[in-house]
Design a protein around this nucleic acid. Structure first.
Length: 419
DNA sequence: ATTCCACAGGAATGAACGGAAC
DNA sequence: GTTCCGTTCATTCCTGTGGAAT
């Protein structure tokens, strides 16, 4: 008897639901594709490529459209001998500075044996390497910067389009394709960058529920066997996706998760609504865990403070009232408590992750303006995610003890000094 | 209309750290 | 080893702000 057996009851081809799957046709993006294609036309004509800027929320097909068009472009360009086209993809997620972008670009252009470290060099040196590499390779270079809004300074966005004008390059032609999830990113760019980077702008609107449904049907037809999905499954996934800002990626992930859950059940041969609901729960947990694991210890302490306050029905709570609880925890964990300003930064970060929601309040002359924080996620989920990290930090025991010993909370924290 | 509370959050600065170059 | 360099996380100081109280 074999330990592993092939399991094909439900999926025909599960890969069709993965992020890297390239569908033959993009649903509902005809207009955008057409504009995009026109913007890329100069490449085929052997002219200086346009810089293109795409914006729209996550999961509305920006990256998919880019992959789709560029693979066609690459194919078609190979028909012409005088066009030497090179595509460089770089996802800027996790990168915060132009410096980091520049080092990654250098590494993308070089082969495996010749990579550079991503730290240590002076900024100018990295730019030098970049220009030298680009010029050595020559030809037409299209550089795709996905999620550019993550980078906080725009020096590279200024330098790249102007490299030729500044005589840093003589042989290579460069076109930048910037992809941003954040519409305000464009407005925050300095005027000189905006004018060069945003020569051609294409806006991708969010999908509505019926677009999402068509997309899901297209993928499901490839991914699942016929009649495996309950009728309600696709509309339900589409509805959740439409609710969360028209995000196709999220809908497809949800569909895949539901399929996986159904497959794991031994006797099950169809995917039902309950699988979708359970899948949603699982995905949510994953997002929370990911967000929480990226926080610093003090971030965890602040979150835990909010959590215990929530359990005592003291939320919504203003930052002033979080502070004594947080100070207490920090001391129990053997850490110096952070200054209030910094603690507010951590609260703001929790809000950004969507773990905590914020309401601004204003009591006027008597009370001034302040913000109230309240937990926005299932407590169980946060607790289980926190559980893992707090163990590492070594404050887990003291907090458990704190939770069990309910008297301590009120006594100690009310006495705890303000900074 | 003016005053003013209590906080939000920007800006400047610094310490610690990992890596490159000498 | 020492000296640069960039990044991250923190502190300190500061200006901005909406609306009840005057």
């Amino acid at each position: 008897m074999s330990l592993f057996e092939r399991d094909t009851e439900i999926y025909r081809n599960r890969d069709a639901l993965r992020e890297d799957y390239q569908p033959a046709q993009l649903v509902g993006r005809d207009e955008e594709i057409q504009m995009y294609q026109a913007a890329l036309q100069p490449v085929i004509n052997g002219e200086q490529p346009n810089n293109v800027f795409l914006y729209g929320k996550t999961g509305v097909g920006k990256t998919a459209a880019t992959r789709y068009l560029l693979s066609h472009l690459e194919e078609d360009a190979s028909e012409y001998d005088d066009i030497d086209l090179r595509l460089t993809f770089l996802n800027c997620d996790g990168l915060t500075s132009s410096y980091q972008i520049a080092t990654r670009l250098v590494n993308e252009l070089r082969d495996e044996t010749n990579q550079i470290s991503t730290t240590g060099y002076p900024r100018a040196t990295v730019y030098e390497m970049l220009w030298d590499d680009l010029d050595d390779l020559g030809g037409t270079n299209l550089i795709v910067l996905d999620e550019v809004d993550h980078v906080e300074d725009d020096s590279i966005l200024y330098q790249l389009p102007r490299a030729r004008a500044n005589n840093n390059l003589s042989d290579a032609k460069i076109g930048i394709i910037g992809i941003s999830n954040d519409f305000s990113f464009r407005d925050d760019l300095s005027p000189k960058v905006k004018s060069s980077l945003c020569e051609q702008e294409i806006h991708f609107p969010a999908y509505d529920a019926s677009d999402l449904q068509k997309i899901l049907e297209q993928r499901a037809a490839v991914a699942f066997h016929d009649d495996v999905l309950d009728d309600a499954v696709i509309p339900l996934c589409a509805a959740y996706g439409a609710k969360d800002a028209g995000d196709a990626r999220q809908s497809i992930d949800l569909l895949m998760k539901a399929g996986d859950l159904a497959r794991e059940e031994a006797e099950t041969t169809t995917v039902a609504e309950t699988h979708v609901e359970a899948g949603r729960h699982d995905l949510e947990r994953g997002r929370i865990e990911e967000g929480i694991s990226g926080l610093t210890q003090h971030g965890h302490l602040v979150l835990y403070s909010l959590l215990t306050l929530h359990l005592q029905d003291e939320t919504p709570v203003r930052s002033r009232d979080v502070r004594p609880r947080y100070t207490n925890f920090a001391q129990r964990a053997g850490r110096d408590p952070l200054v209030p300003r910094r603690m507010r930064d951590h609260l703001a970060e929790l809000a950004m992750l969507g773990l905590v929601s914020v309401t601004e309040r204003n009591e006027g002359r008597r009370g001034g303006t302040y913000r109230e924080y309240t937990l926005d996620m299932d407590i169980e989920l946060i607790l289980s995610a926190l559980d893992e990290v707090l163990d590492d930090v070594g404050i887990h025991d003291s907090i458990q003890e704190h939770l069990l010993d309910e008297d301590v909370t009120d006594e100690n924290t009310s006495l705890a000094q303000f900074q």
